[in-house]
């Protein structure tokens, strides 16, 4: 028995050098779009409804947030800060941060009525199988508050953006 196993092992061919294991196992290689720098995602229907909240009807908040430029800074910083936050950093590993920065910006910009359309996926689809808990959501909210404070956004205005995001909780957390 032992002898035959050893024999079988010895008889095995040495694997060839440059085998494309991804291809052998049917793993699709992810290639960033040369133009956008993003990985492709499964097809979905684009709609502003995917943003998960109705936009403010007035554009006064957009001004408080510094229009698109200010909103982009907040979205970028939120992703940067959260990626480095030991409480939740693991969740972001292997996800496309280039796309996340863009879609988050679009979502905030759309909701704040700063002149964008949201082209990302809906909140439920975007966060399935992440096993998010309220503690993760609280960590993200704290990071967003930190970033908004950093950008000098008045507290009442911060809360108005949060008031649009808070109701999405049941689409994000499993329980």
């Amino acid at each position: 028995m032992v002898v035959s196993i050893i024999a079988a092992l010895l008889m095995q061919q040495v694997p060839e050098e440059n085998v494309d294991w991804d291809k052998e196992f049917g793993v699709e290689e992810r290639v960033r779009d040369p133009e956008t720098g993003e990985f492709p995602v499964d097809p979905y229907t684009q709609s502003n409804d995917n943003a998960g909240a109705k936009p403010f009807s007035s554009d006064s908040l957009a001004r408080e947030f510094g229009e698109q430029e200010g909103i982009r800074r907040i979205a970028d910083r939120l992703v940067e800060v959260s990626k480095e936050d030991p409480r939740i950093s693991e969740i972001f590993v292997s996800h496309d941060m280039v796309r996340l920065k863009r879609t988050l910006f679009e979502q905030f910009c759309y909701i704040l009525n700063a002149g964008c359309d949201y082209t990302g996926r809906d909140m439920k689809t975007a966060h399935t199988d992440m096993g998010l808990r309220k503690a993760d959501l609280n960590a993200l909210v704290e990071n967003l508050q930190f970033v908004m404070r950093e950008q000098g956004i008045a507290f009442a205005a911060q809360n108005r953006l949060l008031s649009k995001l808070a109701p999405m909780s049941y689409d994000l957390i499993e329980r």
């Binding site: 309220k134 959501l137 008031s163 808070a166 109701p167 909780s169 049941y170």
Partner: peptide
């Protein structure tokens, strides 16, 4: 219900 999250 939730103090902060869910249906406002």
């Amino acid at each position: 219900g939730d103090l902060v999250y869910g249906d406002p």
